[in-house]
Design a binder for these strands. Structure first.
Length: 272
DNA sequence: GCGACAG
DNA sequence: ATCTTGTCGC
């Protein structure tokens, strides 16, 4: 007997089907009611009042794994105020993901845990939910530690979460997932060739498809990050928001979720 | 066959 | 993801 109920290849084929199905609901253009906060200089230039709601909260999600027991993980969701980048809400959960990490299928490992966390926010802070059809209204937008359409089938964790939560999401990868001929050296080469202080490069694969953007938060920082559309947002808008939330190499929502999930794990594994 | 492969 | 402290520099 090879295994119980199906080979890994069969399981992955199912996952591919799920990804293709959910991808039909993916929106890769700006689809929200709020406006971007304008930078101080341009706001001062014309004293006109901002009309309509301005983006005020950005959520961030990440998961950390226990060094002793890799099957134990902590998922975290944080909500930051804009433009102060102050953490105004946080939620955690300890979990044992049921499937291993397989490149291209991260969502099947982490999305269930993160979606459960969104439910926890709803439970503990119901005032964040003026509308039932939106999962995380308070956050308005969620940054995900992992890629969006920068993915072998154009449907990474950020897309997966965005579609299931019906929420705008941005994918933030700290490492490049090699897709369509993209390589780290080619990205670095493009960034290095920049004459100006632009730290942004478009990730166009050999097929001509634009998968996302390579971005380094400062010219000094050698290692870029990789931004891609998650759901209900365009790449340009995603990049703009990432840039306005970057204090360090990684944007604060993702960085805080990373730091705090690791800290939560450290405090709780003492009992084990 | 060999290398690549988000977290 | 995780294994890992101090250290050099602004």
């Amino acid at each position: 007997m090879e295994s119980t109920g199906g080979s890994e290849a069969e399981a992955q084929a199912k996952w591919v089907e799920v990804q293709d199905l959910l991808k039909q609901r993916l929106i890769t253009v700006d689809d929200f009611t709020w406006k971007l906060p304008r930078q101080g200089a341009e706001a001062a230039a014309d004293g006109a009042e901002e009309e309509g709601e301005v983006l005020k909260y950005v959520g961030g999600v990440d998961m950390s794994y226990c060094k002793d027991d890799p099957s134990l993980a902590c998922g975290a969701v944080v909500v930051l105020n804009l433009p102060t980048l102050e953490v105004v809400h946080e939620e955690y959960t300890l979990a044992r993901p049921r499937v291993p990490y397989i490149p291209g299928f991260l969502a099947f490992r982490e999305a269930p845990v993160l979606l459960e966390l969104f439910g926890k926010v709803k439970e503990n802070a119901p005032h964040f939910y003026p509308q039932l059809h939106q999962i995380l209204v308070h956050a308005q937008l969620i940054m995900v530690d992992g890629n969006g359409i920068l993915h072998p089938r154009g449907f990474g964790l950020a897309c997966h979460l965005g579609v299931l939560a019906n929420c705008p999401t941005i994918g933030v990868g700290k490492n490049l997932h090699h897709v369509d001929g993209l390589t780290l050296s080619s990205v670095k080469q493009l960034l290095g060739a920049k004459q100006d202080l632009t730290n942004l490069v478009t990730l166009m694969g050999s097929s001509g498809i634009i998968w996302g953007a390579g971005l380094r938060s400062s010219p000094i920082s050698v290692k870029p990050m990789f931004i891609s559309t998650g759901h209900r947002i365009s790449l340009d808008t995603a990049v703009a928001i990432v840039q306005m939330t970057c204090k360090y190499r990684v944007p604060e929502p993702v960085r805080q979720a990373d730091i705090r999930s690791r800290e939560y794990l450290r405090k709780h594994q003492i009992k084990c």
